[in-house]
């Protein structure tokens, strides 16, 4: 029986890399005494797969993984037992049961949205100017024909048009809001969009000037709408449900 878990990664947990987050959950599941399923073979491993890796330094309130269980408890009980094993900066929000034929989260992710905080140093007017400018330009960037950035690969650098990957981009209070293509088909990192904004405004891009927070991870519904990954299944009310 396959379930999907939604969790929040915040605070100092942003310094824990993706692979270590996976290991953290593998151990947490066992501490919680949840009946996770294992692969067959000489060195069995837990059947667990994560949706969209988060870069080091980024926080998120919309993270997901799927896992296979031999027996179930209710969604509320899952959440409670997981959270007993969490530490500061990690919280499980919800658990749903997926239909048997559900595709795994990694393959269906289509987009995610972000809030970017532009850090300004106090009493530095240049900073305040930059912030105002970036926010202003963000409202118009998508009007351009192409949005170009330098993308560094292992071998060389190339100019790339990332416009197709930006679904939405606008100022939201004193933060930037952006909805970007995510997943195996096309994956656009929020840093690149900030870089494009800097390029547009003539500021030099400095990665420590921005704090990135993922709000949600989305998939496409049958109608082509972007919806939460939780839409794939239903909450479990009865713990002994057979899948």
């Amino acid at each position: 029986m396959k379930v999907r878990v939604k969790y929040v990664k915040s605070g100092h947990f942003k310094f824990i890399g993706h692979l270590d987050v996976m290991r953290f959950f593998q151990k947490a599941v066992k501490r919680a005494g949840l009946d996770i399923a294992y692969s067959k073979g000489f060195s069995p491993h837990q059947l667990m797969s994560f949706a969209a890796p988060l870069a080091l330094g980024v926080t998120s309130e919309g993270e997901y993984f799927d896992a296979e269980f031999n027996s179930l408890v209710s969604s509320d009980e899952f959440v409670r037992r997981f959270n007993e094993q969490m530490v500061e900066g990690m919280t499980v929000k919800d658990v749903i049961l997926l239909p048997d034929d559900a595709k795994n989260s990694m393959s269906i992710v289509a987009a995610s949205d972000y809030h970017i905080t532009i850090l300004d140093k106090e009493e530095d007017t240049a900073c305040a100017d930059r912030k105002a400018k970036l926010l202003e330009v963000s409202g118009h960037l998508l009007e351009k024909e192409t949005i170009e950035v330098l993308r560094k690969t292992k071998k060389n650098e190339k100019v790339e048009d990332i416009k197709n990957g930006i679904f939405k981009l606008y100022p939201d209070g004193d933060q930037l809001y952006m909805l970007l293509a995510t997943g195996s088909a096309y994956n656009l990192k929020p840093e690149l969009v900030v870089e494009a904004l800097c390029r547009e405004t003539g500021y030099e891009y400095q990665k420590f000037d921005y704090r990135i927070h993922r709000i949600e991870t989305y998939m496409r519904s049958a109608e082509g709408e972007l919806v939460s990954l939780l839409e794939s299944g239903t909450r479990i009310s009865n713990g002994n449900a057979q899948g």
């Binding site: 100092h12 310094f15 890399g17 270590d20 330094g57 530490v87 500061e88 990665k207 420590f208």
Partner: peptide, 27 residues
């Protein structure tokens, strides 16, 4: 939340920041 001794900037600059932030399970 404990305030970390190292700034975000330093933690992002160095190898394996998890070495310096504590907060491990059973701490």
């Amino acid at each position: 939340m404990t305030t970390l001794a190292l700034s975000d900037e330093i933690l992002m600059e160095i190898e394996k920041p998890a070495r310096y932030i504590g907060n491990e399970v059973n701490m």
